[in-house]
Design a protein around this nucleic acid. Structure first.
Ligand SMILES: [Zn+2]
Ligand SMILES: [Zn+2]
Ligand SMILES: [Zn+2]
Ligand SMILES: [Zn+2]
Lengths: 140, 140
DNA sequence: ACGCTTTTGACAATCATTATCAATAAGGCG
DNA sequence: CGCCTTATTGATAATGATTGTCAAAAGCGT
């Protein structure tokens, strides 16, 4: 009786749009995308919904090197990380037990408890690399 | 003859201020700190200088979870990462060849080039863990 | 000291994100 | 089905960090 979530077409629109997006996308870009498709959804709502989805664990979020918040529909339930093309946004989910253990270990070795970690790799995907840097088709 | 860097008291002021700071600090905060100490340095200059220092490898930078850029005087010369107490801000520099190789490897394995990576571990340091979470004194 | 360039700094301009708050619409209920 | 309560929306203003502008103020080699 506390969190009475209501079903709105806006929430569904964001879910669907996020789900049909390859790779990470910013709130701004997702809003533009929805508007282009004829939706009249508001920007603030997109921000709110994405934030909510992230909190509920239905979306992944990370900060781009430029400080923008990016979101992605979360497919694999468990904990994982990402390899992201900084040109076209192509994203590969990667699991790395190796890194998980390392993070745990280094935290413990220094007396730290409740360790969390941020691990993301950015680069240029094969296609974008092959383009010789020529084919510029920015994220989203 | 290309990069003719000049020595200005502003650059030195930022260097010194950054060096005498424990843990990470934002450009805004560093500017305030300098102003409080009587310096007349401009905000834009602090931003420029910090950015330059980071580029030169004389400072570390990372994005706080809130999306703010934080800087820290870099003691160990090479590439490294950080273990940060999310309660008191205590920071430990950590090197992790293991992770470096993993990042390179996973990028290469997926056809990605020019890999960059973000790797940071947040947790509670020994003191803050021992305090039972009582002593709350947020970062910076 | 001179002159060419870099650097500075006050201020405006951007840009992403959040806060407002009146208007809207979901859901429960009779 | 209508009504009422309340979560949600969205246009817009506000915020806050960062960057751009550009004339004035230093570096530095001569
Ligand atoms: Zn790509
Ligand atoms: Zn992990
Ligand atoms: Zn601590
Ligand atoms: Zn590294």
């Amino acid at each position: 009786m506390s969190t009475a979530k209501r079903n709105t077409w806006q929430r569904e629109a964001v879910r669907k749009a996020l789900g049909s997006t390859e790779g990470f996308i910013s709130a701004q870009a997702l809003h533009s995308s929805l508007r282009d498709r004829g939706s009249s959804i508001g920007l603030a709502t997109v921000y709110r919904t994405l934030s909510a989805l992230a909190d509920e664990g239905d979306a992944d979020s990370l900060q781009s090197p430029e400080g923008e918040a990016l979101y992605r529909a979360c497919t694999s339930a468990g904990h994982h990380h990402h390899l992201i093309c900084r040109n076209c946004g192509l994203t590969v989910e990667i699991s790395a037990d190796e890194v998980e253990e390392w993070a745990q270990g280094v935290a413990a070795a220094n007396g730290f408890t409740q360790p969390q970690h941020i691990v993301d790799v950015f680069g240029l995907c094969a296609s974008c690399s092959a383009g010789g840097g020529g084919a510029e088709h920015p994220i989203s």
